[in-house]
Design a protein around this nucleic acid. Sequence first.
DNA 1: AATCAAGGAGACAGACCTGTCTACCCAGAC
DNA 2: GTCTGGGTAGACAGGTCTGTCTCCTTGATT
Lengths: 206, 206
Amino acid sequence: MAIQTTDKRTLLVETALQLFYQQGIHAVGINEVLKAAGVAKKTLYSHFASKEELIAATIELRDRRLRGWLEFCLTEQPDGAPAIKAIFTALDDWFNERVEMLGPFRGCFFINASAEYGEADCPIFQRCQQHKLALRQLMLKHCEVVLGPGEEAEQLCDSLVLLKEGAIISAHLLGDKSAALKARDSAQKLIGVAGLMGVSGLMGRL
Amino acid sequence: MAIQTTDKRTLLVETALQLFYQQGIHAVGINEVLKAAGVAKKTLYSHFASKEELIAATIELRDRRLRGWLEFCLTEQPDGAPAIKAIFTALDDWFNERVEMLGPFRGCFFINASAEYGEADCPIFQRCQQHKLALRQLMLKHCEVVLGPGEEAEQLCDSLVLLKEGAIISAHLLGDKSAALKARDSAQKLIGVAGLMGVSGLMGRL
DNA sequence: AATCAAGGAGACAGACCTGTCTACCCAGAC
DNA sequence: GTCTGGGTAGACAGGTCTGTCTCCTTGATT
């Protein structure tokens, strides 16, 4: 994760993201970010009005990066069940730190950030929420390919989202680095059940 | 959650837990805890060597309280599948703030705390981990009643834990207060599949 | 060569943090 | 009545935090 850029703003956001993700947001002061980035305080405050704006920028960066990476992981996959499987496989790569872009695994930055800024009306919390909603939308798209649009796809999507979030927590807090693969297995079972209950015969696609 | 006690130590821990849970640990200073509790600083430092010890005590209190509540919810239930169902029903009560003892829902205190104290060698992180392991043990007990001891019960248990953790995150971050019921449905499907794959005929017990 | 803008370095203000310490109060034991 | 221990109240030290401001360097442009 060596940072290489001439754009000071980008450099600051990259550095802050690294530190915030590794140590927690409240635990990292502005001065620490500045020292690590080798940037002067004046420069920071010419780009951001406050620490809170810097935090918001790190969340946006992480959001772009995580979604970009996930979409990249799906480029080779057909939509529907294979893509869903690939999402969980991608999580496994993340947990086991095979994705250099995402850095050492320390849980989900959005979950962590919203633990520190958990008021529902806080802009930081809302950005975290938007990220999770966007990922749910991605999941829903593939569920609809499997089951067709409708209530059943929504239900399957919700279940898969639960498994995904649960896997992130288990990988971090329980230290279970195989959580993504367990979630993938469970996901396949749920897709199978949903297929059986809906249009029969789809289970074979798994 | 009106606190009523003459024991200063208990009063401090109760107050600190409330504030830490609602606002985050780093976001609440010692002085704020003291003011809310109406206790002098000297008293605090006669019971705890540092803020960190107070934090540890709040985690222990929350652990005792949450596990006690969960076990109480299971007293009327037979072991196995009904107990598992009851666990998710209890989560639903929690998310929708029908459990006064647990206070307004703001996610999982242990997940939140480990977001702020996420180093694997940090004692606070380890206490959070122990809590999650204890709950997994409870879940495993009931999975073993359903499937008998062995690899399959472990697998089912892992899946159910994923659903449980995912439900907590979805309820908090996505604001989906019905996450526990969705998780309960998914859990029943997974128990059904596991039953089918293992000793057949157990699915009827659901 | 002269000018000028961007950024580096860091002092500083004012607030807040943890943790210590002093001074006082008051109920109960003797 | 006197003493004592537990508690209150809060000043204080020493540190860190965010955010502002000043002084200086440097490199590009005119």
